Simulated assay, not measured.
Amino acid sequence: MHPVRKQRLILVLVLVVLSSAAVGFVAYAMRGNIDFFYPPKAFAAGEVPMEKRIRAGGCVIPGSVQRADDSLDVQFVITDGVAELTVVFDKILPDLFAEGEAAVIAGRLLPSGVLQADQVLAKHDENYTPPEVADTMVSHEACMNGGKI
């Protein structure tokens, strides 16, 4: 092999190894900041990890919102038309949060099967549903009928 070609080959190999290492370090550093999305039917099937930050989404079932009289605590149920998930939240809900509308919740699943939310995102307007929620919803009518299809 010609010395110039050998030198180029070594340079290319070093660049590939260094860039692969950089990508690996970035992926390793970001692993703690990734929130996986699960629909309520995954919670019912037991496919969701406990005590790890996750996201869930669905339609807030009308009549399921229960607010505490003496604090900001609120409990509500979301559905994807197949299963239901109870959510508890202890902060101020977004202005657009409403029963019968889509919501995405970030938080941790408690051993009791309840999602302890630390963030609730309400749908943007009447024509928009977050894509991950829209993909999991069987039908919007299921939400309006209390989770029944």
Rank of each mutant, 00 (worst) to 15 (best):
S71G: 02
C59A: 12
M50L: 15
M30G: 01
I61H: 00
A22D: 02
G147F: 00
S112A: 10
P3C: 04
D135K: 14
G63Q: 07
R53W: 06
V88K: 09
L121A: 11
L109D: 08
P130C: 04
E47P: 00
F36G: 06
H2M: 09
V77W: 05
E47Q: 12
V65K: 02
I54A: 05
P111F: 09
Q66C: 05
H140Y: 14
I54Y: 05
V138W: 06
A142Q: 02
V87F: 00
L121E: 14
D80R: 02
H140N: 13
A117Y: 04
A45N: 10
V120W: 01
L121R: 12
F97C: 00
P62D: 09
I54M: 05
R31K: 15
G24E: 09
E99C: 02
D95G: 09
E126F: 15
S71F: 09
E132R: 10
Y128G: 02
A103K: 08
Q66A: 13
D118R: 05
I34E: 07
R8I: 15
K41E: 14
A56L: 04
L110N: 12
V23N: 09
D70R: 13
R55F: 07
A106V: 13
A102Y: 01
Q7A: 14
L96I: 06
G46F: 04
G113F: 08
Q7C: 08
A122F: 07
V88Q: 09
M50A: 11
P130L: 03
E47A: 05
I105H: 02
I54K: 00
D95S: 14
A142C: 07
G46V: 07
I105A: 02
M1G: 15
E141V: 12
V74C: 03
D125P: 00
A117V: 03
P39F: 04
A117R: 00
V104P: 02
E101Q: 09
E126I: 15
F43R: 00
I149D: 11
N145C: 01
V82H: 10
H140D: 11
A134V: 00
G147T: 03
D135W: 10
P94V: 10
A103C: 14
R8P: 03
I54V: 12
V114A: 06
I61A: 09
E141T: 15
P130K: 08
M1R: 10
V23Y: 12
V88S: 08
Y28P: 04
I92A: 14
